[in-house]
Nucleic acid binder design. Sequence first.
DNA 1: ATGCAAATGATAATCGTTCTCATTTGCGAT
DNA 2: ATCGCAAATGAGAACGATTATCATTTGCAT
Lengths: 141, 141
Amino acid sequence: MQQPEHLKNAGLKSTVPRLKVLSLFESGQERHMSAEDVYKLLLASGDDVGLATVYRVLTQFEQAGLLVRHYFEGGKSVFELNQGKHHDHIVCLQCGRVEEFYDTAIEARQEKVASDRGFSIRDHALHIYADCTKKQCPHKP
Amino acid sequence: MQQPEHLKNAGLKSTVPRLKVLSLFESGQERHMSAEDVYKLLLASGDDVGLATVYRVLTQFEQAGLLVRHYFEGGKSVFELNQGKHHDHIVCLQCGRVEEFYDTAIEARQEKVASDRGFSIRDHALHIYADCTKKQCPHKP
DNA sequence: ATGCAAATGATAATCGTTCTCATTTGCGAT
DNA sequence: ATCGCAAATGAGAACGATTATCATTTGCAT
């Protein structure tokens, strides 16, 4: 059980809801989850935390650097474990599957584009919306 | 007055609110506007259209290809005239100013990344969030 | 000019998210 | 162990952006 350490290091006291949310992400079962997703999965596994708490905890975890928040199209934001390595996303419009990628050339060009224009990058989001070309989408929404 | 043609071509009958919204975008005064922005600007210039109508018209224009919608962080979407040429955006986190850019290398790499993974791109959004490095931000939010 | 489908505007409803506040809990000091 | 209190929680209200409802108005083909 290493979660309490994570929370301590993040300056958050280890409470039941926080441990549950964190271990849900660490279970690896679902990598990208919205607040609603987290809430429903916890309810489904018998743990009942309030929806408000889920929102609060997700925001705290984001601020603490434990999670990363993404704003995909459609208005709702999704979270994933912060594993240090930045990456961008391809979202399948058919099945909603999210695949991650990292491209050095793209990253470098972004820096150039920004500095050429007198900006210093704080963050960026590259979302490619696409269709799987495989016969059938392997995952469901 | 060429707007009625635009609307006709888009299969939309030319009504007063639609003409007003379109000419607001074509005035070039503000390039990126949210529904609320459009609504307030129209009110300010004495034209009173309903907020619901603004939302409807913006969505129709987007579907008709007259406008492009962007989902920036913060939940609200902004629209701009569709001038055919795709481009991405740098958003200043201090003042909210939006600058456009297009980078061939980035576009090409995206295609490669997607096809390498068996996806065919339908759309993409690259948003760089940054700070102006200039002494003071030139535009306000 | 006339009629009617389509469009509008006011308002209610919805959705994701945040706020409020009374109750509960983690945890350092005893 | 247990006490006390600040911090965290949960239920529900409140919120902002957007969409749906529905009675009234308007564009436009006849």
